[in-house]
Amino acid sequence: MNAATLEQDLDVAPVWKRLCDLDEIPRLGSRVVKSAAGDIAVFRNAGDEIFALHDKCPHKGGPLSQGIVHGTTVTCPLHSWKIDLGSGAAQAPDVGCTRRFKVKVEDGLVWLALG
């Protein structure tokens, strides 16, 4: 996926959906959200930042939600591709990108934007 289509994805007016309490996502862990757009993986890193990606590795579709989270990266459980949580892009030398979704935390509640 190139940068232009990514921007388009994010330009769609967001519809914010309440997901869960921040505490219901483990630190350095994730939860899976079922949505009309397919499974979405919502990650929480050590600094309590939240990220959301389509739950499919750009390599062979592995469930990223099941990977180990470190820094702002998740390692796919199937073949250890490293995916950047912020951009959805695979770490070099691998090439690929997974779709990202907007998320926010307000008053300890996690919100996910679907559009």
């Binding site: 990977g67 470190h70 250890s80």
Partner: peptide, 10 residues
């Protein structure tokens, strides 16, 4: 690194 990686943490 702040919290390691999928190799060293396990």
């Amino acid at each position: 690194t702040p919290n390691g990686c999928a190799t060293c943490r396990p």
